[in-house]
């Protein structure tokens, strides 16, 4: 209950802050919206020349883009702008302020910079998903939708954990710019390329080390009925493993934190 009240207060403050810059309010929506429109155009061009990429047709690929867009939209609305500031707060010693507050520092960092301006991205993504379902001609059952929502939920959690994990490296190293560069490159690659394209060492890297390859792939596979029990168990195991790792790195990082000298 206490955390709910804090969350509500953070949202109110953030709203007041954002409304001062009304044009910037919708900025993330336009930027990310254009990114996913470009992706749709790219795959439309590819599918104008080929029928299938692996086992996926145009509809499945639209579904993939919509799902990645939805995961990204939740990220932008809820936690991206807060989590993104972790590195600078560790380096500048500003983290001190968070340690003195009567709530978890990570909770406050996660929710202090929510961005309601990105909400249209959620609607936009749902429209793409709807279009993808129609284009793929999938017969949607309640079981499949539940499976999709379950995997979508845990992949949103995984996305969040990856962001926190990469920025927590700043507790231990002087600069984690390379880690963020790696995150950007991995995300860019996997936004354009579904997990079904990976094999061998690439599959290991993008499924287990930088698991961006499974983030939109598993929800889509569960919706189109392409997911085996083994794949489902693997997806859940990866999320559990990264949850443990993120908690461990964050807790140890907080102990390692030495104020401005970090």
């Amino acid at each position: 209950m206490k955390y709910y009240r804090v969350w509500k207060a953070l949202l109110k403050i953030r709203f007041q802050n954002l409304m001062m810059f009304r044009l910037g309010f919708w900025g993330p929506f336009f930027v990310d919206g254009s990114l996913f429109l470009v992706q749709l155009a790219v795959f439309d061009a590819i599918y104008a020349n080929v029928d299938r990429i692996g086992s996926w047709g145009r509809g499945e690929m639209i579904l993939y883009i919509g799902t990645f867009s939805l995961i990204n939209a939740v990220n932008m609305v809820v936690y991206f702008f807060g989590v993104n500031g972790i590195t600078s707060k560790i380096k500048s010693g500003e983290m001190d302020l968070y340690l003195t507050k009567p709530v978890s520092p990570l909770f406050r960092l996660t929710f202090e910079r929510m961005n309601p301006g990105s909400l249209p991205l959620l609607v936009f993504s749902i429209c793409i998903i709807g279009y993808g379902v129609r284009a793929a001609g999938i017969s949607v059952s309640a079981g499949r939708v539940l499976g999709y929502l379950f995997f979508l939920g845990i992949m949103i959690l995984l996305y969040y954990e990856m962001e926190v994990l990469i920025r927590s490296v700043a507790f231990y190293l002087v600069s984690n710019a390379r880690m963020e560069q790696l995150e950007e490159a991995g995300l860019e690659l996997c936004m354009n390329l579904p997990g079904i394209a990976f094999y061998g060492i690439y599959k290991f890297v993008f499924y287990c080390i930088l698991p961006y390859g499974i983030m939109a792939t598993l929800p889509v596979q569960s919706l189109i009925g392409e997911m085996s029990w083994g794949t489902a168990a693997f997806g859940i195991a990866v999320v559990c493993a990264f949850s443990g790792l993120t908690a461990l790195v964050w807790r140890n990082g907080m102990r390692h934190y030495n104020s401005a000298s970090s």
Partner: peptide, 28 residues
């Protein structure tokens, strides 16, 4: 005064129209 949003959108579009994601020959 504030053009950063526009610059980011420009970057997204330029990557498409310069053909760095896929060759433009694939388009109609």
């Amino acid at each position: 005064e504030e053009i950063s949003t526009f610059l980011m959108i420009k970057d997204n579009l330029v990557s498409l129209v310069t053909g760095t994601i896929v060759p433009l020959a694939l388009f109609p």
